[in-house]
Write a protein that binds this DNA or RNA. Sequence first.
DNA 1: CTGAATGAAAA
DNA 2: TTTTCATTCAG
Length: 448
Amino acid sequence: MPAERTKRAGRDVPQLVWTVPVEPISIETEGLATFSSSALAFDDGPPPLVDPSDFILFPPSDGCPPPPRKPAHTKKKPEDHIPRPPNAFILFRSSFIKSQHVPTEVETNHSTLSKIIGMTWKNLPDGERLLWHDKAKAALDEHKRKFPQYAFRPNQARSKSSTEKRKVREVGPKDHKRCAKIAELLVEGKKGQELDEAIQEFDKHHVPEVVTRFEAPLTARMYRRSSSAPIPDSGEILKRKKSRSASTQPATPIGSSAKSFPLPETKPEIQPAESFMSTFDQYALPSAPSPSLDFNTFSFDNHSSPLSMYHVCGPLSQPASPMASGDLLFNPTQSNHSNLSIDTSFLDNWNCPSPLSSESSMPATPSFIGSPVPAYNPYIFEDTLAKTFAGHFPAYPNSCEPQYAGTYEAESPSVYPIFDQDSCSQVHMANQDHDFSAFMASLPEYAI
DNA sequence: CTGAATGAAAA
DNA sequence: TTTTCATTCAG
């Protein structure tokens, strides 16, 4: 039975039957919903639900009410394994995928889809989310009835090994803004072809955030905002100067998991592309003033070995700094920054073809409107960077070497570029081994 | 097998 | 508090 995905006309929507215990919901099509008897069981309160005038954004796909007992898990599970009952979100996701609200032209990757669906979920009208919680409850009841003896038994053996040496496939960060846009369009009711068109338009002007192969830039401000950022000691003063851009913080839900390292919860306001752009700009006009940074207050980690590397992509102010004019510094054998050499040889390959021009996982490269002739293409720049670092970057699967795509044991020190938001310049590189708080605390001028 | 999301349930 | 595992399937 074809679900009518041709709604558009506001009305149609099925009246909700909240108390539905078991039956595949009897919502149905014809204009007036018939109330199931159970729904009428209690009339002493307003059914806590949705206005009849509301309509459902994402109607459950028909196979929904019963837990989509699929072909028993592909593998590796005992034949008698009983899966957990699905929770509300899982049900929603499952139905969402089945309905193909997001056409494959827009996104096929399920990790990204999860992100999009998660965002959509949060933006869902409360009433509609309730519907899924209700279904989850029904599924749970059903599950209990079906497997009365069932008890969830998380595999502890797994937890042991996984915390100690976890295999991590580092995957490029998703384009948060694009996901958010898709989610936004979805809750506006756009799906399928309509969504595709809207996103095509969006992609035309949107500079993908994921340009750099480095970790997401971390600014001092973001760091301080981070919930996991340590509260500075009374001694260590962060004079909070009024931040005029405080309101620019996107209304993004509080970050999810507390990672071992305080990454920003939202993408930094400055995008890597923009920062690279500014790098390029500095050739033309010598640089905005950037905050002075006393490198003496911070000691680089001398034994962090293969990754003692500095990638300077913005104007560095430190007048006497050896990096002042540096574009790229890489010196794996030297840990003393006073001896760093500047390798600009990669610039010779400046025009090497971008992988993106041919085929790429990247959405169509936006033409960098506004930038005249020697249009600066950050992708090319990035590609050049990656080549320069090829072999030195075990932790970066997105480097130009495809074999990084696989699973591997993450190398411990990941490198984090630190940007100053105001000057849009990268001021430092840190890895997890550093005492990051101390470093941050040493930079009062970066205080909020 | 992993990653992504959220949430229930267990350790 | 922290971890697993429900769904999905390309990589």
